Amino acid sequence: MLQEAIDLRVNPSDETIHLGPLAVRFLLTADNSGGGIAAFELIVPGASRLAAPTHSHDHYEETIYGIDGVLTWTVAGKQIDVGPGQALCIPRGAIHRFDNNGSRDVKALCVITPAAIGPQYFRESAEVIDAAAGGPPDRAKMAEIMRRHGLTPAPPQA
């Protein structure tokens, strides 16, 4: 029976990472879960889209649970709306992105299994997005960060 001192806590990160208008706040990281799961809250303002390139990941699933508003995910070319109380599991290798096509802010819970990505990816991406000062982020820099953290950028669409 495991009775050693275990560092358990609620909401281990008070840090909110801003990626342009988007906000990410980790609730669980690999360090909090033995590497099994990472979970973060995602806030996407109305009429906003993912600034990072469309991408896939081969080493983990990403499950999205809608809390407030509707986020439109494009997965393998298919658009899927995820609203409050709905969940979408994005399988390994599926090329995907998201957009908030509505006028209200969206809040979603994103769960990564296993916990192959964490706050550092978002911190590094935020630096590149902030450096773009509202313009498109440097695609080569974003791609390098993505690859280092286990994401595969999709080729630009014509």
Rank of each mutant, 00 (worst) to 15 (best):
L2K: 12
L2D: 14
R9M: 04
S13P: 01
S13G: 05
D14V: 02
E15D: 10
T16V: 14
I17F: 00
I17V: 10
A23L: 06
A23C: 11
A23E: 14
R25C: 07
R25S: 10
F26K: 02
L28A: 06
T29P: 02
T29I: 06
S33G: 04
S33T: 08
I37N: 08
A38I: 04
F40A: 06
E41Q: 15
I43W: 11
I43C: 09
I43Q: 11
V44Y: 07
P45T: 04
G46S: 10
A47T: 13
A47I: 10
R49V: 12
R49H: 15
L50M: 15
H57N: 11
H57Y: 10
D58T: 08
Y60D: 08
E61T: 15
E62G: 05
G69H: 04
V70E: 12
V70N: 11
L71D: 07
V75T: 12
A76E: 15
K78A: 15
P84Y: 13
C89W: 05
I90V: 12
I90D: 00
P91S: 13
R92C: 07
A94M: 09
A94H: 09
I95C: 11
H96E: 09
F98D: 02
F98Q: 00
D99K: 08
K107N: 08
A108Q: 04
L109I: 01
C110D: 05
C110G: 01
I112C: 05
A115L: 00
A116D: 07
P119H: 03
Q120H: 12
Y121G: 00
F122D: 00
F122C: 01
R123W: 04
E124D: 15
V128Y: 07
V128W: 06
I129P: 00
A131S: 10
A131E: 09
G134S: 00
P137K: 02
K141P: 03
M142H: 09
A143V: 05
A143S: 15
E144D: 13
R147I: 10
R147L: 09
H149Q: 07
A154Y: 06
P156I: 04
